[in-house]
Design a protein around this nucleic acid. Structure first.
Lengths: 112, 112
DNA sequence: CTGGTATATAATTATATTAGAATGCTTAGA
DNA sequence: TCTAAGCATTCTAATATAATTATATACCAG
C-alpha cells in the first residue's frame, strides 16, 4: 500500500508492459508461432497445441485484446491471424539472442 | 491436475517463454531502458525508478539470471549493464508496433 | 575490530494469472 | 424450431509473481 506514483512514472503497467506481458506465456508464444505461417481456426489451434479449447480461447482473447491477433468468422469457425507481423520479428530476435547466449555459454564453459 | 505433457510439448516454460517472461514487467522494462544508454549502479537505478532498493535488486536478479544483464563490482557498488544489446531491438520493435497500432486505431476511429 | 554504506536475500503478505469445468452464444442444417 | 458444432465467457481453485519489511553480506574507512 501507499504506492508512490511519481510524475515520471506511467500509472502502473505501461503499454509496452502490457504488450510484452501479453506474449509472455508459452502457450501464447506457441500460438503466435503457429500463426506465423498463416491463419488458422480455433479448432486447429487447440488441437495442435494439445490444450483445452476453452483455455485456447482465453489465450486468443488476450492476444486479440492487445490487438496482436485479428479474427474473422467463417461459418461456425473463427479464423485467427497475426495482425502485426512485427511480432514475429520480436520472437525471432529472442531466438537469436537465446542462440547467442547458448553459444557464449558453450565457449566459456560457464556452468553457472 | 492430471496435466498431460505430450511429447510435442516442452516441459513447462520454454526458454523463450522464460526469456520473455523476464522482460515482461514494467519495472524491468524501465531498467533496460535506463541501461540502454550505459551502465549504472544499483543506487542510481532504484533512485531513478523510484522503487525500493530491495525490489530493484530482485528485478535486477531476474534479468541477470536470464543472462540479459551483467554486473561487476566497483568498491561498494555493483554496476549493471546490458549483456546482449539485441534486447533493446526487441523493445524498439515493440515500440514501433505500438505506435503503428495507435496510428491504425486513430485512422479508423475505432473507439473499441 | 567497529561502524557505516551499498547491495542481496529471505520471509511474509498481497495480488495476478492460470487451467479447468460449466455454461452461454451463434450459426448451420435438418 | 430443434439440435449439434464451434467458440467464448464466467467462475473458482490452484499457482505464480510481486512488493514490503527485515535481515544478511560485502566492502571500506578509521
Amino acid at each position: 500500500m501507499l504506492r508512490q506514483v511519481g510524475e515520471n512514472e506511467g500509472k502502473d503497467f505501461s503499454a509496452k508492459g502490457r504488450f510484452i506481458q501479453a506474449i509472455a506465456h508459452p502457450t501464447r508464444i506457441r500460438i503466435l508461432e503457429l500463426l506465423k505461417d498463416g491463419e488458422l481456426c480455433v479448432c486447429d489451434i487447440f488441437e495442435e497445441l494439445n490444450v483445452e479449447q476453452a483455455n485456447t480461447s482465453q489465450h486468443l482473447a488476450i492476444l486479440k485484446k492487445q490487438d496482436i491477433l485479428q479474427s474473422r468468422k467463417e461459418g461456425l469457425r473463427v479464423i485467427y491471424s497475426i495482425k502485426y507481423p512485427e511480432i514475429i520479428d520480436i520472437l525471432k530476435t529472442a531466438d537469436n539472442l537465446l542462440l547467442q547466449q547458448a553459444k557464449d555459454t558453450m565457449s566459456t564453459f560457464n556452468t553457472d
